[in-house]
Design a protein around this nucleic acid. Structure first.
Lengths: 343, 343
DNA sequence: ACTTATAACGAAATCGGTTTCAATGAGGTG
DNA sequence: CACCTCATTGAAACCGATTTCGTTATAAGT
């Protein structure tokens, strides 16, 4: 195995410098209780012998880490990597570093990582796990969270669990749907479809409800055949579009549960030689390629900067021992690009 | 600060179970030197009081971690996240977990993370840092690597440093360029431009040399005005295309230093109302959106599966104490899509 | 019956830092 | 000169696991 041996310790440094280990430790922690000249002496010897303090020893005695555990489904998904990188950058300024884990949305993997994080005594856990996106998580899934919460603060991002009173930051998805529908109405659309998503997943259910409500608000007819919840991937979007195109009557606008499914829908149109300008498309998330695909996508942006700032604000409060607010909903905003046009 | 206190230790468990801490530890490590009945007894008590072993204490005494440090420029870049996620998945099977750090390509940030990793006593470091991509890294940058290597094995991915004899895995970029040129020649192209990249960066220099060599091989004239090294981003690609279009004579094919600059180039064409079919475009990297942008991109795939397998193979060897090979070059492959056509 | 092997367990040392508390000496004060 | 303050320093306890080495009891071998 990969073992680190014959390590140089503060005791070795102390001997060489003719001081006590205490003094060496003080130099390490930057304590002011050391004469400047001895500090320099010790520092020089550290450099000379290439001393590297052992973090495990420090963590053990201080009962602290400056590590934040971060669980998300898949970092290759631009939505998550955009959130992650910003939280990392902002947390770094507070002196925290981040430990990332990809759960691939699998509950048992999440369990494993939650356990790992408590063993590592992380300062807190940012959780974008799959289970907080289920409308009906199992008792075990809930209990596990509660148990971990006894030891480590948890911040749930874009999800919730009934009975779990942890910190919650989420983006206002209903508002996003309203913005989209308003925009489409303005462009004169009256026949609107909704593709992608999975029933029983919180965000899908939530968006679907908001969609129905908005349609009712404008007195538009809600057509069940135009709601096609196939999934969240590009392939799922392609499949949904294929199915949608089999209807005799077609909508003028197509609303995707996220950006990816719209990429798929557009691809399906291309393959069937249907001009993409036949429909107005809207996505959700504003992930980075949405700016560069063709047609570039009208979509909902999560206000990543505010979202991540709020996450870090909670971490900051935890660090300072303040209580702070337990929940926060972030406004979303509409980004208009080429994929929507007048009917 | 966020401190963990009043922890339950193996001593508490031992007392409750009427056994020694040694026995509890044996249960934790899965040692066979425990009677099945006492093992169950101890396990039950652990569950009962919700005991979580302290990893710092374990790391301290065993002088080991099963952690791999991973430094890359930016995880939001699909090229890196694709490599990262695969290494993570494969390393997980070996019992390793990964600690990711984004250097944003900045050398001083890399230094900080290298230091952090040695303090954490990681098992090894996978390094896709910026400095290994410089044709002329500074002495300090090299020395730092050498110092770290004294304590932790380093695996450099797609980069090198003269005088540094660590493990090296890289993709064959020259081969990629050859494949592209061969493909373009087959389609009848004779006028070819090269956009993006930065002189002094290894991969750019390497690709440029390969480009010149291939052009010579086919007796094509190399036109300096058609080589425009602006950078690596979408914006840089846009700028390069803008500049290229100012030439009186234009090429029929445009070769990008990576996929992103081609996204930018295509965008610039759109803005200038030039049909994208005017040129054949080729990228490099085959990042995920290249499949879905329009036109979908002909590009070079890094054989991510083999690349990551080789990385993990080195880690496996390190774990087993085997020496193994020090370097490996991975073949690249051409992926033909819509962006290239007969001239 | 006596030695020996084996299974199960525990005492105590150990990893490498931090922190508490006490000690020392120099300088200031009345 | 006695007393006090303040700046530096060190001895030793401590964090919570693992591991070495020795002990005990029981089964097996001769």
């Amino acid at each position: 195995m990969i073992k680190h041996k014959k390590n140089i310790t503060i005791y070795d440094i102390a001997k060489k410098a003719n001081v006590s280990p205490t003094t060496v430790s003080r130099v390490l922690t930057g304590s002011p209780l050391v004469k400047e000249s001895t500090r320099q002496l010790v520092r020089n010897i550290m450099d000379e012998v290439d001393f590297t303090p052992n973090e495990a020893a420090r963590n053990l005695i201080t009962k602290q880490t400056n590590t934040i555990g971060f669980i998300l489904p898949d970092i290759t998904n631009p939505f998550f990597s955009q959130v992650y990188i910003e939280v990392e950058r902002k947390a770094l300024e507070l002196g925290f570093n981040i430990l990332l884990r990809n759960s691939m949305g699998r509950s048992e993997v999440e369990s494993q990582y939650l356990k790992e994080f408590t063993e590592k005594r992380v300062a807190c856990i940012v959780f974008m796990g799959g289970r907080i996106n289920k409308s009906n998580p199992s008792d075990q899934e809930v209990n596990e969270i509660l148990e971990v919460m006894n030891k480590v603060p948890i911040i749930m991002v874009n999800g919730k669990m009934k009975g779990v009173n942890c910190y919650r930051i989420r983006t206002n998805e209903e508002m996003g749907i309203d913005l989209i529908i308003d925009h489409l109405i303005e462009l004169g659309h009256k026949e609107i479809a909704l593709i992608g998503g999975i029933k029983g997943i919180t965000s899908t259910d939530c968006k679907t409800v908001a969609f129905k409500r908005a349609m009712k608000k404008y007195n538009l007819k809600f057509i069940q055949d135009w709601v096609i919840p196939t999934g969240f991937s590009i392939e799922d979007g392609k499949a949904a579009m294929k199915q949608l195109l089999q209807n005799k009557q077609l909508p003028t606008a197509i609303l995707g549960i996220n950006d990816l499914v719209i990429y798929g829908a557009i691809r399906e149109c291309r393959e069937q030689k249907i001009p993409t300008s036949t429909f107005s498309f809207t996505g959700f998330d504003d992930i980075f390629p949405s700016d560069i695909v063709h047609p570039s996508l009208t979509t909902i942006n999560h206000n990543y900067d505010i979202l991540t700032s709020e996450i870090v604000k909670v971490i900051q409060n935890l660090k300072d021992g303040k209580v702070g607010i337990k929940g926060k909903i972030i406004d979303t905003k509409l980004v208009i690009r080429e994929s929507t046009r007048k009917v």
